[in-house]
Design a protein around this nucleic acid. Structure first.
Lengths: 133, 133
DNA sequence: TCAATTCCTATAGACTTGATAGGAATATAC
DNA sequence: GTATATTCCTATCAAGTCTATAGGAATTGA
């Protein structure tokens, strides 16, 4: 239950790798080999992380990827959301739907609370926390 | 991300329905009609809830289901775990695997913390909380 | 021009999820 | 004891998601 996709776990490992190599551009293939991630799969992951502004990609020879910010400024929530979208236990957490029809809808409040608990945990930790002590 | 399966949501709605009808046995079909849940699908859900000891099933005419305990004694975590198993963001939360090979494995500690945050939230709320104010 | 790299699109297999179907076992009422 | 209402069991199916691969276009530096 609440299992995290391989994609997200790969993304975190890749980001951690970049955190250990700040200042230089690391090619996707090098990260893949170093972290045992399927190379072509990782390519797509890095592209996605780039779209979300978490990493910067540089093409051509001597190209590669590097963090867009300092590790302590990148929250784990931002990585998770970049891969799988916003934390949303049930759809009505964002749009009330049937709940809006006059019912107090306690389940909805319950799910919103769960979302907030998860967001608080993930938002309160940074990439630095999982690369250093 | 971290979306809760329809099955689990159905289970909670069904449990809430039983909470509103304590003391009597409610047939699966009645719950299904009342809560707009696919009848045959709900049957399987109730069987599962029964296996976990959360509800009691009575066969034959005038049979049906009822809560095995008071709503305030049934945690939301127990319902979620009955449907989808224990909260386990990544597999190595329970068995260390590669992490055990001498590495400090900070990601693992991170995931364990997430599991604990979710468990604490779900474990701290009961069926009563989502049926009453 | 060449080589290394990101970037884009398409595809495929495996697995999971949501749902249905048919019937066997069991209990009650008449 | 027969009919009826119900849980219980097993099999199946369609659709979607997840993981992974393939091939090549665009870009950059030497």
């Amino acid at each position: 239950m609440f299992s995290v996709s391989a994609k997200t776990q790969y993304a975190i490992r890749a980001m951690a790798h970049l955190a250990k190599n700040q200042g230089v551009s690391v090619p996707s293939a090098e990260i893949a080999a170093s972290e045992s991630i399927p190379p072509k799969f990782l390519e797509g992951i890095l592209t996605q992380l780039k779209s979300s502004g978490l990493v910067l990609g540089e093409r051509g020879k001597n190209g590669g990827f590097r963090l867009a910010d300092k590790p302590e400024a990148i929250s784990m929530l931002s990585i998770v959301e970049a891969m799988d979208g916003s934390v949303k236990p049930v759809s009505c957490v964002e749009k009330a739907g049937a709940c809006a029809q006059g019912m107090s809808c306690l389940p909805r409040i319950f799910w919103i609370g769960l979302k907030e608990a998860i967001d608080a945990y993930l938002g309160g930790r940074t990439l630095k926390d999982i690369t250093e002590g």
